[in-house]
Design a protein around this nucleic acid. Structure first.
Length: 373
DNA sequence: AACTCGGGGTG
DNA sequence: CACCCAGAGTT
């Protein structure tokens, strides 16, 4: 992890007017980069090696609004199951959804599969330009730039949440984040070097993740603290400036836990689109925005002797949920659209956490793994 | 431009 | 608990 040859090269080739920020970031990256499953080492890059576009794409999609720690295990599992984009294209969509279960934002998995299918039709080769990548499903402005820079060595401006934080602090940008994006992009474009653009992007992301953190940034360890306007004024944590968020709406609903008596519970598959699209769940009502204490079993998706079994609350990023739980013994065939599944195996199904809690509320211990005695 | 979409890590 | 995370698609 010692500084490498290309560090000096990057310094020498720094654009006129470059204060040296890019060079210092690259040198810091050589010494302090995170070691991540989808990365090749900067040393290998110097030898002419490039990251596998498939692995870069897969990791970038998984990392959309998802933390590195959460992604690692899923990434390893995916590349083991499907080592190439052709292998992923050949897989049943259902298997892909199942492997994605637990990561969240399930439209990403649907787009991932659709994208793999398209790329396989192109002979398994991803487009090697930002514009070409941008046309594929699930690849937006950020991901197109990231793949172009990291996998294809294109000098693209890669702007994610980390980069926004680093840049707004470097320049003490007081404009709220939503309005400041064009300005941030322009600043990043000026910073991108002709050599090692992918490493610069990853350097800024690593800096944002380990030094220039949202809370309590470690400015004393920062390689560009001398260039940072916010360090000079003494309050880097103030950036980026955001507009205050609206209060979270409270959503109410009811969930129905039907138990067969042999450990099986009635489940169904959600619609492909919308919240938790394509996932398995306990039957529920839709959202009921207003408080209605009279939410009764009349709203149940099928007839049974429903008894109120409790209530659970859960705070999501975007709303708070209050769920009434109803429980009933049910025999016979599963109604249309529903199917029986063993409760203790539910953790292996694509079942949201809240629904697992709902089952636990109605039938304590139902979702615990059964252990042979 | 504003909403919607999840689960998890962090201070 | 509040905030945020290698954002994208829809309206």
């Amino acid at each position: 992890m010692a500084p490498l040859d290309q560090t000096r090269k990057a310094s020498r080739q720094a654009a006129p007017g470059d204060t040296g920020i890019a060079s210092r970031l690259l040198a810091w990256y050589d010494a302090h980069h995170r070691d991540l499953p989808w990365r090749i080492t900067p040393g290998a890059f110097a030898g002419g090696a490039r990251a596998d576009p498939y692995r870069v794409w897969l990791s970038e999609v998984m990392l959309q609004q998802t933390t590195v720690e959460a992604v690692k295990a899923y990434f390893r599992n995916f590349v083991e199951k499907w080592p190439t984009v052709e292998a992923l294209a050949a897989a049943p969509a259902e298997d892909v959804m199942k492997a994605w279960a637990g990561l969240g934002y399930y439209s990403r998995a649907r787009n991932l599969k659709a994208c793999a299918d398209l790329v396989a039709l192109r002979g398994g080769h991803f487009p090697d330009t930002e514009a070409g990548l941008r046309e594929l499903p699930g690849i937006g402005a950020y991901t197109a730039a990231a793949i172009a820079a990291i996998a294809f060595d294109r000098p693209a401006a890669v702007v994610d949440g980390n980069v926004e934080r680093v840049m707004t602090r470097l320049h003490s940008i007081e404009t709220p984040l939503s309005e400041a994006k064009p300005e941030i992009r322009a600043l990043v474009e000026k910073l991108v070097p002709q050599t090692r653009p992918g490493d610069l992007a990853q350097a800024m992301m690593d800096l944002g993740a380990t030094i220039c953190t949202p809370k309590r940034p470690r400015c004393m360890l920062c390689p560009v603290r001398e260039d940072c306007s916010a360090v000079l004024t003494g309050d880097p944590e103030r950036f980026p400036v955001r507009v205050p968020k609206d209060d979270k709406p409270l959503r109410k609903g009811a969930a129905f836990v039907a138990e067969r008596g042999d450990g099986a519970i009635l489940l169904r598959k959600r619609p492909e689109k919308g919240l938790l699209g394509g996932m398995t769940e306990v039957p529920t009502t839709g959202w009921t925005a207003r408080i209605d204490g009279a939410t009764t079993a009349d709203a149940a998706p099928f007839s049974a002797d429903w008894r109120r079994a409790g209530q659970i609350g859960h705070v999501f990023t975007h709303f708070a949920l209050e769920l009434e739980i109803f429980h009933a013994p049910v025999k016979g065939e599963a109604p249309d659209g529903h199917f029986w599944s063993l409760a203790h195996e539910i953790s292996g199904e694509a079942l949201p956490t809240v629904m697992k809690k709902a089952i636990e509320a109605a039938i304590p211990g139902a979702t615990k793994k059964q252990r042979p005695h």
